[in-house]
Design a protein around this nucleic acid. Sequence first.
DNA 1: TTGCACAATGGCAACGTTAACATTTGGGCG
DNA 2: CGCCCAAATGTTAACGTTGCCATTGTGCAA
Lengths: 334, 334
Amino acid sequence: MAAVKKSVSVKDVARLAGVSEQTVSRTVHDSPSVRPETKERVRAAMRELGYRPNFAGRSLRRGKFKTVGVAMFNITGTGNLDRMEGFAAAADKHGYAITLTKVDGHPYTLESASSRMSALPVDGMVVIMNRMPADFGTFEPLPGMQTVLVTMLEHPLCSTVDNDQFDCSRQVVEYLLERGHMTVHFISCPERSLSGMRREEGWRETLRAHGIEFPQLVRGDWTAQSGYAAGQALADDPTCTAIYASNDAMAYGCIRGLESRGKCVPQDVSVVGVDDSLGDIVPDCRLTTVRFDNKRVGMWAVDKIAGAEGVEPGVEHMLFPGVLVEGDTVRDVR
Amino acid sequence: MAAVKKSVSVKDVARLAGVSEQTVSRTVHDSPSVRPETKERVRAAMRELGYRPNFAGRSLRRGKFKTVGVAMFNITGTGNLDRMEGFAAAADKHGYAITLTKVDGHPYTLESASSRMSALPVDGMVVIMNRMPADFGTFEPLPGMQTVLVTMLEHPLCSTVDNDQFDCSRQVVEYLLERGHMTVHFISCPERSLSGMRREEGWRETLRAHGIEFPQLVRGDWTAQSGYAAGQALADDPTCTAIYASNDAMAYGCIRGLESRGKCVPQDVSVVGVDDSLGDIVPDCRLTTVRFDNKRVGMWAVDKIAGAEGVEPGVEHMLFPGVLVEGDTVRDVR
DNA sequence: TTGCACAATGGCAACGTTAACATTTGGGCG
DNA sequence: CGCCCAAATGTTAACGTTGCCATTGTGCAA
């Protein structure tokens, strides 16, 4: 019952099995040039000693870590869990691991994420950008460290990937226009949100493209309470027959706000949200919304790094469109 | 503009600065026994060459990785984001990194998590247990790999930490009894959930301790829809004045279900949930619920590993109580 | 029998870092 | 002037792994 003093190395296994260290190494990698019975003897020795290959020695020798670093300024954020699911799935596929780091956002710069990662055992890094970093234009990725940014903004030196928020708004607005609504009101979000701003642009541009004056938007703060207030405010506007909210919480709040003023959804007003996040939480309404595949975004990012394997990777920019999910909150008024 | 062929090492820096490799190493660690002007010269050389210390070499030498592995069977799960926040915060504090791994749950065993981790550069591991692993009783952590399980079940060889779900139910039931309710009805969850089952036990035992026969429970499935159905069913039961739901979504669904049958909350029936997850999503009710500090749970787990630093760590079991948050959904009937 | 190809295995060095020990230098003090 | 101490720096070796090349053994064609 003596405690294990040191970790067992190939040397120990080699001694016990009566072979050279090299043969042990070859057995670990299942090389065809080791006789089956030798392999078995080595394997038995490994089992007996509880050998497990040392990651540091291996990486040092190989010059690769088989690990992707993920830098986040905020761990808690819509979709992060799904993105991580994607990171982990893609990493798994390539035999890679994921190293997670929270980066201090003061100041909010790519440089701080990059320097944080540089000391870690990673072959490449993914940065989740929620806001606009101060050095976005001037940032240069570390040499030899493939860098992928999760954002809609294209960067000249780093690959980028994200959900297409502009297209999301286009889909929603056109969906409502096709169903006979003369215009679409919009409940927006705080101006610091990159994705929220892009949604706002999409709403504005799509209406403009259809030759429709866009109404005054209502600025919310992502919460149902702000949506509720917006709903009450819009309830008195007779031109308002369709509302597009920048997330589902505000959309749901808006519905309740409208109801509190005697308006029914979808009979009087149609409402559409974004995120498909209400699923199991709200019992009495199937909200029409847009579903994003954040897992796919995460997978793409890690694939880009782990899939490269030595080949010089080009800079690429990828946007995945969301899918409009039809619920019960939109009425066709044609 | 020639590409960097190899990574720069201490040797390169030493040569450029005209000092020994050891002096470079000492400068990296800001040792006091290097003259300031020498340090500056070395630092200049590091900057010029873009030197960053190699993690593999360092770990190999030190025999430590300064990294904690986190194994999850399901990445997506209530509270995981907050727990990760905690992992990252504690890791940061100790100068550690977090390596995230999704473990295939077929079969759902601690052994599979452990062997997955053994090949990664980690000094210790945390396993998030949502369900009961088949080998919980027989599992032995890898020698030299400090293992912490996030679960309420105590393990003889591994430290454990979690929210105290039993105490959560005790708090809720006693809170309702103190306010004059004769009994507390319960909306439960699928039987495979460990934490859900523990909440159920807490409800049952606390009522028993107060000498109250516990009513038939209603089994839900975590969704608001199931809570809605439960609410409708309980609306017709005249003995039902207080309902405790195993999560907030079911509690909210229950409220709507009661309303659909003409019962008002809290005038006719009091409702309490668990998780404090409705905050920004539901506009029109401040649900009385229990808030857990999952971040603290995550921090404790990583602290236990990263804080040990060589000292032989004992097996410890920690449960953090939740906090009952008073909303507007409970009526005092005394 | 000799030569040769090929299968199986071993020896050696190097990856980058740093702990431990060794050496040099300068200065203070008897 | 010589001695000793401390500060500053250098030298060596080792952490565990694996690529490269060398060595040994075996069977087969010439």
